[in-house]
Design a binder for these strands. Structure first.
Length: 953
RNA sequence: GCCCCGGUGGCCCAACUGGCAGAGGCAGCGGUCUCAAACACCGUACGGUGUGGGUUCGAAUCCCACCCGGGGCACCA
């Protein structure tokens, strides 16, 4: 807290007693916050269930669900950057309530996760205690901001009554499989029925009844949407847990904590999100999201259409994936990933030593190093050859680390003339580069070489459309065409007809690694029997409560100890791990799963629980879900349903938004939801940035203690460097909302945050600018209340025509701007109106009341106070937002700027009804125009009705 | 390297999507109040829109090339 702040306004004895000061603002604000709580002003009615009030639902109007990305309750508390989006959604929600909508708006807490657990490890205090304290502090800070949340609907993911349903949803996913034919998830029991009835062949071809119980379970388990898998995962010894692909940064470190991450094969829970890859891409078309987020999701899922092609080799057929089967005639060698399972089988004895060396070198490299595209290509020959199925040529098989085991089939056909990577590799190892396309003349010209099919002269591979050459055999001929798409489809057909391959689709998206070896998360509702078979805990036995312990830390290791093994804190709780249950086969001893879910689990469905937070029968009443989130086919036929407006930062573009969409779709498939998508419209708010300063050692110094001098910035007598960054504790540049409440009040803070720019733009925080909004509220107050007596000075006389017209234009503009989330321009219009009123002798009620109503969404406390002083007894929350009189929006006359050759030379005023000819006549009769023209001949007169006139000479 | 955003008075930002560059706020300057100041109030000046071309009667807005800032992706076959 800064005590030398220049913003504190000492209220001296000369300050008028009834001036709108920070002290008065604080008094008004806390008073109305208490009123709202006591009256339950923001309680939102449901059509059914525990919050049902059908009469109120009917009275409030059409539904609107406004949602913020819910926060992690940090121990550091809020800074003024955090609530930017919350203020935006609050203003919007309040505006919509006044526009006749039944608005659902609340806030919960995403409270499982690492920080609370790490704090617990340090202090020995149970994370539930810190978490609850942090939530309480955050609730206090948010309440002081005047957010119009329905407090009855708030939830925390750590609440057993909440995670009971997170576990229930997990068990739904566990008990489902994806039916490719129907393109949807179905209950696992239906798969069992299909096998039992013989309608679906078993993998081994044996009759279902001939299989043992364990064999049957293995087949079933292989189809579950949540499954255990022995697979390469991201092991992070520094965190003592595995993490998901999405949680690994591009340079191969954990996004939390920045520790090295290693690929290891381990037995872990996975979610079969890849089954939904197509729908997750295709349904993006139904959403109103920014192009940036849509492309990030598309990119992450990474769908590529292509073909699998089978090449014969000494070790049997090797399948490669290619997006360019049309270039098969140019495939002059093959490359396998070093980890490819057939490497040993194809390696000749001569090459065995070299291959073994290369593989161990590749294995020792981190993924980061392997994926550095600027690195020169390395690789080694296996010594054996595969047969190109289209040419019959024997082509050498190499291994190289530029081919990744995790994508496609882990093997490629190399077409060096048409792929830059293959081209570089061929040049490096003197492999043949046959030309199969004739690049256009411009391409050769660009590279300063003569057109030639001798690739020895080519500086790089040619990628794109061009006529094919050398691309025919006895049964297929591409040489007559020059279009890649046509070539691809022709070759794919040939591959399929000749059993050399088939058209296929691959994805970058991998299945979601879902287990973590931590304490502070949702336990899995899973136990294992003596055969090691997983059983789900029945719904009526949920929640599986997180067991008490005082040892929260997973076993962590040196951050680079790649070959350590995870050990969950729950593993140590042997009394809890061993459990006697009756799961239908009588009382038996089971062993509990000791993993917990990742933090994303709780945020995959929280918006659904807001709808029906107290329901102990189902996670959400279907009728309530249909009301708030059902598809609005009345708006457009392909409306997917979901939240009407979701506001949050872009940092969740891939993780949260992908996972939540996936869970939502599973629940939709299983018939629990009417909406296909959770978030119809997504709006990404910007960040509040702030100056940060580093000293000569590069350490951040307290930003509030830095002074600006002619020689630069100085801290404690030492020069410092100004940097730019997101506001936060780590950059030592955080400003707390509590400081702002103290100096100006919450209404001023709200107004400033909304006025400083568009909601989706990032902008720098300037504490010294805040006073502008404070002055505005003081002028507003002074226009209606006598500063020395406190008496209301608003008069009942009618407003003059000018004022009335300005009022109605303001109403018209503010409505439009608020509806479009452009609060900065709405505020500018309101300040303009208020500045106009300031110049009048007295404020008319005719202006005062609509002005207070228009300001109510932005500055609800002072608006409530003025509304009450103007003689009203009800809260302003549900008063109708003013409507502009259309008659007052049009002028009787229009002033036209007159341009001569594009420069403004004069102005003429004509009747608003005047047609183009009349405007032209009036213009040419204008003395100033005649003077400037000075008899020059006119080529053309352009009249844009209502806008301007341009005379062209 | 590729893909998105964005560059407008000293600063944060408007400009009806091609029609008078300026709405609003901060800072500045001049004044009122004051013994003086702070607070508050009144009044003012300020740039031609990152750069260079093009289209047009007319460009901040559309097109091309480039520069700068922010974000995302990156050996994905």
């Amino acid at each position: 807290m800064s005590d030398q702040s220049s913003n504190d306004q000492p209220v001296s004895s000369e300050t008028p007693e009834y001036r709108y000061t920070s002290v008065m603002a604080g008094d008004i604000e806390t008073r109305w916050q208490e009123y709202w709580d006591a009256e339950g002003t923001f309680a939102t009615p449901n059509p059914a269930g525990s919050l049902a009030d059908p009469t109120a639902v009917a009275a409030r109007g059409e539904k609107l669900f406004v949602l913020d990305m819910f926060p992690y309750p940090s121990g550091a508390g809020l800074h003024v950057g955090h609530p930017l989006g919350y203020i935006g959604t609050d203003v919007y929600s309040r505006f919509q309530r006044m526009s006749g909508r039944n608005v659902l708006y609340t806030m919960g807490f995403d409270a499982f996760g690492l920080p609370a657990e790490q704090y617990a490890v340090q202090t020995g205090q149970h994370p539930a205690i810190t978490t609850n304290a942090n939530i309480a502090n955050m609730r206090r800070q948010l309440r002081r901001l005047g957010l119009s949340h329905d407090p009855r609907r708030s939830i925390s993911t750590t609440d057993p009554e909440y995670y009971r349903w997170t576990q229930w949803i997990f068990s739904q996913i566990f008990n489902s499989w994806y039916d490719r034919d129907q393109a949807r998830a179905r209950p696992i029991s239906e798969l069992e029925d299909l096998y039992a009835a013989g309608a679906r062949p078993t993998p081994g071809g044996r009759a279902w009844s001939a299989l043992s119980r364990i064999e049957q379970r293995q087949i079933i388990d292989d189809h579950r949407l949540a499954y255990l898998s022995e697979a390469p995962v991201n092991w992070c010894p520094g965190l003592g847990t595995v993490v998901a692909n999405e949680e690994v940064t591009a340079d191969g470190r954990s996004d939390r904590g920045n520790y090295p991450v290693f690929k290891r094969r381990m037995r872990q829970w996975m979610m079969r999100i890849t089954s939904y890859a197509d729908r997750l891409i295709d349904d993006l078309d139904l959403l109103e999201w920014s192009p940036a987020i849509i492309s990030m999701q598309r990119n992450w899922i990474g769908r590529s259409h292509g073909a699998n092609v089978h090449f014969d080799s000494p070790a049997g057929p090797i399948t490669v994936f290619t997006t360019r089967p049309d270039t098969l005639f140019g495939a002059s060698f093959m490359v396998l990933a070093p980890e490819h399972p057939l490497v040993d089988a194809v390696t000749t004895s001569d090459q065995a030593a070299a291959v073994a060396t290369y593989r161990s070198e590749a294995g020792a490299k981190k993924d980061v190093d392997r994926q550095d595209a600027t690195r020169t290509k390395t690789g080694v020959s296996t010594g054996s050859f595969a047969t190109n199925p289209v040419t019959g040529t024997e082509i050498p098989i190499w291994i190289a680390d530029y081919v990744l085991m995790g994508y496609g089939t882990g093997a490629i056909m190399a077409v060096p003339c048409g792929d830059q990577r293959d081209f570089e590799f061929a040049r490096m190892f003197d492999l043949p580069i046959p030309a199969i396309q004739n690049p256009p003349a411009e391409w050769f010209a660009e590279h300063g070489i003569e057109p030639s099919l001798d690739t020895a002269a080519w500086p790089e591979a040619y990628v794109g459309n061009a006529p094919y050459v050398n691309s025919s055999n006895s049964s297929v001929d591409l040489n007559t065409i020059s279009d890649v798409a046509e070539g691809v489809s022709k070759m794919t057909a040939w591959l399929e007809a000749n059993s050399h391959g088939n058209g296929t689709i691959t994805y970058k998206l991998r299945d979601w690694l879902f287990s973590r070896q931590r304490y502070w998360g949702e336990p899995f509702p899973i136990v294992y029997d003596s055969d090691g078979i997983a059983h789900v805990i029945p719904a009526e036995m949920l929640p599986v409560a997180l067991p008490e312990t005082d040892s929260f830390a997973p076993r962590t290791f040196a951050a680079d100890d790649e070959f350590s093994d995870p050990e969950s804190p729950l593993d140590r709780l042997t009394d809890w791990v061993e459990v006697e249950l009756d799961l239908g086969d009588g009382l038996q001893t089971y062993r509990r799963d000791t993993n917990v879910m990742p933090q994303w689990a709780g945020s995959c469905w929280y918006e659904l629980r807001y709808l029906d937070p107290h329901n102990d029968q189902v996670f959400v009443d279907p009728e309530v879900e249909r009301y708030w989130m059902g598809p609005r086919t009345d708006q457009r036929p392909d409306h997917p349903g979901g939240v009407d407006l979701y506001v949050g930062g872009v940092e969740h573009a891939v993780l949260h938004l992908l996972y939540a969409r996936f869970w939502h779709k599973v629940l939709y498939d299983l018939g629990h939801l009417s909406s296909k998508e959770p978030y119809t419209r997504l709006f990404n708010q910007g960040y509040i940035l702030a100056d940060a300063y580093t000293d000569e050692r590069g350490m951040y110094v307290e930003a509030t203690e830095v002074a600006s001098t002619p020689d630069g910035f100085v801290h404690d007598g030492q020069p410092v460097t100004r940097e730019w960054g997101k506001m936060g504790k780590s950059l030592k540049n955080a400003v707390s909302p509590d400081e702002m409440y103290e100096a100006y009040g919450a209404d001023t803070l709200r107004l400033y945050e909304m006025a400083m720019g568009p909601l989706d733009a990032s902008r720098p925080w300037e504490t010294r600018d805040v006073v502008g909004m404070y002055r505005f509220l003081q002028r507003l107050w002074r226009n209606m209340v006598d500063e020395s007596t406190g008496a209301v000075t608003v008069v009942d006389a009618p407003a003059d025509p000018n004022t009335r017209q300005l009022l109605h234009r303001t109403i018209d503009a503010v409505r439009t701007e608020m509806d479009a989330l452009r609060f900065n321009t709405a505020i500018a219009k309101l300040i303009e109106l208020n500045n106009h009123v300031t110049r009048l002798n007295a404020t008319c009620r005719e202006v005062a009341e609509p002005m207070v109503l228009m300001l109510a969404p932005l500055v609800p406390h002072v608006a409530e106070e003025l509304w009450q002083r103007l003689g009203h007894t009800e809260t302003i929350t549900y008063e109708a937002f003013p409507n502009a009189d259309p008659a007052l929006l049009v002028d009787d006359t229009v002033e036209y700027p007159v341009q001569i050759n594009g420069k403004v030379r004069s102005r003429v005023t004509v009747s608003a009804e005047a047609d183009a000819a009349a405007v032209e006549a009036a213009t040419l009769a204008d003395p100033r125009v005649i003077e400037v023209l000075d008899g020059a001949s006119i080529r053309k007169v352009i009249v844009v009705p209502g806008r301007m006139v341009n005379i062209v000479l």
